[in-house]
Design a protein around this nucleic acid. Structure first.
Lengths: 186, 186
DNA sequence: TTATTTTTTTGACCTAAATCAAAAAAAGCT
DNA sequence: AGCTTTTTTTGATTTAGGTCAAAAAAATAA
């Protein structure tokens, strides 16, 4: 539950916990289900309770490019679409059995406005997201196939362990064959 | 002045404008000056009035990798370091004559806490930064040299016009020679 | 303006990683 | 268990873009 996660990071009164909790709805999905489709407007923000959500888009020729894979305790949505209200450039797809909590954009805005601890938490969270994206995008950019793999292995061992090679390779922007070869020599 | 920029995006009372303005200090730099050095703790947030600021880091072998180049009306700092208070992984260097406004982290926090319109603006700004970084990092990642150049040409023509080739190439993570060749055939 | 330094272009060659194709291994089914 | 489908590995070949070196062009200084 996002409330528990939030409570771990800031002090919440019982009243606030209940209010926040009332805005989120538990949903279960199974392998392959789409949470958001490329080109559609983003309607929800999700919080992953357990499982995986893959962000990707499809090239003209049909191949899919994976952007990232999110897992337990991550908030996930197309941030671009969520904030700009433009159609999403990416799809979100569940991998394996996955439980999430969901809140609509409208409700999110309402909650953000009326619940000050929630607002404070999300603003903190934004800062974290920026710090992480900044670091990740700037460093990943200049790495070789091997360096990227080793980096992912260090920072997200769970992904490397549980996600199939094809998705990992695409996420690292290298071919599956190259990743297989890199992995052998490590 | 950041206040003018902020005022364009949200309504500010005269009193708030003056308070915000009082926290920022105007500074002038010239070509090559460092605003932040890799490995150091970030002490300031800058707002670019006019000019360019390049973010980069140095590889073991001495070559510099440019992450991005910021220009007029951008807030610039090492966001990672600014928010986590860890040492910066990047340097910030001024290109050409550049005027900025600067605020220390401590003052920023003070202002963020006591001035609610400023806080609201920055929270909005965070959302924009996330939307932009999300889009940029995810799309750039899977582009060819030519695609990246055309993208930059479309979205940041000013950079392409005014920044020298070597920096642009590094920012696109391609060699200067390749960029020169790409440019010829466009 | 000529000289000097910096930046960009061009050419020849090389390499990391892509692609294509097929075999091997692993995971799911009945 | 054996059969089928999916995933991963391996091998052969190609290619986009890198590197190195030198020439050309542009900017800056004297």
């Amino acid at each position: 539950m996002p409330v528990q996660y939030i409570a771990q990071h800031s002090r919440l009164k019982e009243k606030d916990k209940l209010e926040i909790a009332s805005y989120f709805k538990a949903l279960d999905f199974s392998n392959g289900d789409l949470l958001l489709k490329e080109g559609a407007y983003t309607k929800q923000l999700f919080f992953i309770q357990k499982g995986f959500v893959r962000s990707f888009y499809r090239l003209e020729n049909g191949t899919e490019k994976t952007h990232w894979i999110y897992t337990d305790d991550d908030f996930v949505t197309s941030w671009y679409s969520f904030f700009t209200l433009e159609p999403s450039f990416e799809s979100l797809q569940v991998l394996g059995d996955t439980s999430v909590y969901s809140i609509s954009i409208a409700d999110y805005k309402k909650l953000y406005k009326r619940n000050e601890p929630f607002r404070a938490f999300m603003n903190e969270y934004y800062q974290q997201v920026i710090a992480e994206m900044d670091y990740l995008s700037k460093t990943f950019m200049h790495m070789s196939a091997k360096e990227k793999y080793l980096f992912l292995l260090k920072t997200s061992p769970k992904l490397v362990r549980e996600i199939k090679l094809g998705y990992l390779a695409s996420l690292l922007d290298i071919s599956q064959e190259t990743l297989s070869r890199v992995r052998r020599q490590v």
